[in-house]
Write a protein that binds this DNA or RNA. Structure first.
Lengths: 169, 169
DNA sequence: ACTTAACGTATCGTGATCGACATGTCAATT
DNA sequence: AATTGACATGTCGATCACGATACGTTAAGT
C-alpha cells in the first residue's frame, strides 16, 4: 500500500492535481513506484475521504488541486519512521537472466547487448536530469538528489554487468 | 504475468513439486520474482490445464512432481525471444528516499545507516552463495551465475551509495 | 506411545493493479 | 468554423497478489 504514500509525498512537496501526479509518475517517483490513472484518481478520493489530503481549489477543465493536511504529513512521517521498508522487488529483466540458458549462445549475447543498450540510455537520461534540472534548495532538493544518485548508481552497476556479460564467452 | 514463466523456468531446470518451488522462491529466483503458495499452487494447476507442464508422478504426502512439456519449453523461449522485458519496478526503499526530507537530519542519517546495514548483510549472503554453492556445469550454471553477479553488482552499488549518503552532511 | 516439526496441497476473502473505455474542456492550428 | 491534441477526471471488469486458514502426511525425537 505504498501508492498512497507516494501520492502524499509528492503532494507534500507541492500541491497538485491528479493529472500532474499522473505526469510526474512517468519519471522520477515513477521509477520507484509506477502508477496509472486507474489507480491514482480513486486513491486521491480515498485520501480525501480519510482527511489526509484536502481539495484546495478547482480550476479550469474541472481540475482539482489537492494539498496535504496535517494528518497527511503525520501519516507520511509515521510511515517513514515506524514501518519497515518492504524488500519485495519484482524485477523481470533479472528474472530473465536466470533462464537465458534456454536460448542459443548468439541470442543470449544479443539479449545482453540489448540490456546494456537500455541501461546506457537510462543512465544518460538520469545523468542529464542530474546536470540540467535544478532541484529546489534545502532538504527537499537533497532528498531528490539522493534518490537520483541511487538510481544512477544501480543503473551504472547493471550497465557494467551487462557489458561484461555480453563480452564474456 | 511473469509468475508462470518463473515457474516454467525453474521446472525446465529440473522437475519439482509445488513445495520445492515454494522453497526455491525464498532465495534465488525469489529475489527477482517473489511468490507465495497462494499463488503458486493455483498457477501450477493452470499451467497443467494448458498443457505447459505435466504431472510426472505423485509421491508421498500427496506430492505432485511436475515437469515441463515441449509446449512449455516453447512458451518459455517465445517469452524470452519475442516479448519485451517489463521495466516497471516497484522499489519501496527507493521511494522512501524521495521523502526523507520529511524527517529530522538525525533520523534521516539513521535510516541511511540501516539501509547500508541491510545491503551489507544481503551482499554477504550473495557472496557466500557465490563462493560456496556449486552451480551445475554448462549453460544452466552460467545463467545462474550471471544472475547472481547481477544481484551482487546492484547490491554493492546501493551499499556504497548508502554509506556515502549516510556519511554526507 | 506421544509429540513436534517439516512436508505438502488447497482455498478464500480482500485489496492492489492493469488496461480499456467514457466523457468533457480548453487552446491552438488549419 | 472545424479539427486536433493536450488537459482532466472518472469507472469498470478482469486479473494479480497477499495473508490467513484448513487439512492431511511422514519422519524424527523423546
Amino acid at each position: 500500500m505504498s501508492l498512497r504514500h507516494a501520492l502524499l509525498g509528492y503532494l507534500a512537496e507541492e500541491p497538485g492535481t491528479g493529472y500532474s501526479l499522473l505526469k510526474h509518475f512517468d519519471g522520477s517517483v515513477g521509477y520507484a513506484w509506477p502508477a496509472r490513472q486507474g489507480q491514482i484518481y480513486p486513491e486521491l478520493n480515498r485520501l480525501r475521504e480519510e482527511g489526509l489530503i484536502r481539495q484546495r481549489e478547482s480550476g479550469a477543465r474541472n481540475s482539482k488541486t489537492y494539498e496535504v493536511t496535517e494528518a497527511g504529513i503525520a501519516e507520511l512521517r509515521r510511515w517513514l519512521r515506524e514501518t519497515e521498508p518492504s524488500r519485495a522487488v519484482r524485477n523481470e529483466p533479472l528474472l530473465r537472466v536466470f533462464f537465458l540458458w534456454l536460448l542459443e549462445p548468439a541470442e543470449r549475447e544479443a539479449y545482453l547487448r540489448k540490456e546494456a543498450e537500455y541501461q546506457r540510455a537510462l543512465l544518460g537520461e538520469l545523468e542529464r536530469i542530474e546536470r540540467e534540472e535544478q532541484p529546489p534548495r534545502g532538504p527537499k532538493g537533497r532528498s531528490y538528489r539522493l534518490a537520483l544518485e541511487r538510481g544512477i548508481a544501480t543503473t551504472r552497476a547493471v550497465l557494467e554487468w551487462a557489458e561484461r556479460a555480453a563480452g564474456a564467452r
